[in-house]
Design a protein around this nucleic acid. Sequence first.
DNA 1: TTATAATATTCCATTTTTGGAATATTGTCA
DNA 2: TGACAATATTCCAAAAATGGAATATTATAA
Lengths: 94, 94
Amino acid sequence: MKSNLYKKKAQIFKALSNPVRLEIIDFLADGEKCVCEIVEKLNYEQPHISKSLIKLKETGLIKDRKEGLNVYYSLKICCMGEFFNCLNKVLEID
Amino acid sequence: MKSNLYKKKAQIFKALSNPVRLEIIDFLADGEKCVCEIVEKLNYEQPHISKSLIKLKETGLIKDRKEGLNVYYSLKICCMGEFFNCLNKVLEID
DNA sequence: TTATAATATTCCATTTTTGGAATATTGTCA
DNA sequence: TGACAATATTCCAAAAATGGAATATTATAA
């Protein structure tokens, strides 16, 4: 069923349709980070960051790795860079 | 202000976060289409299609051209093809 | 075993999105 | 003008997203 694929893609875009989550992805593009680093960098409440990370993970955009008390998150999809570059160009035009 | 850019990008992703709108974009990748063609192809109510098109246009993802009674829509951003291909690969893995 | 640091979860009110149904607008042609 | 075809708009109830606040969980180390 092709419509099912559209639903799955829509889910991915929905996960990306939030400024905080985009900022997280942008930061993760720099490499794996633990939650505390993300909280420190982005200046949002820890629960907010945590919920954002979980949503991104559920959608399959990032993955996590536990090490002691820390949880490290990293990007799972590598094709976003080009797309983001394109979006930047588009947004510059306006 | 960088956070403003994240908001704008989030808006774009929000516009893409709906199966019907994705299906429209997929169809438009084939070239310019008038509303009636889209309605016929996608099998949704005309007002629904119309609202979807307007949302995509507001976000700057598509543009329109009027000719008599018809309104023709076409893609305005060309970098979606690669990104969609990547998403397809990601979705196949699951 | 207790305290603490790191992270996750729950609860909740507010806002936003969704999609159906009815209706309005606009352009064309007889 | 009047009828009709193509498209847009409005209204609305249900569903989903948002983000703050409080709280829970988990692992570690003393």
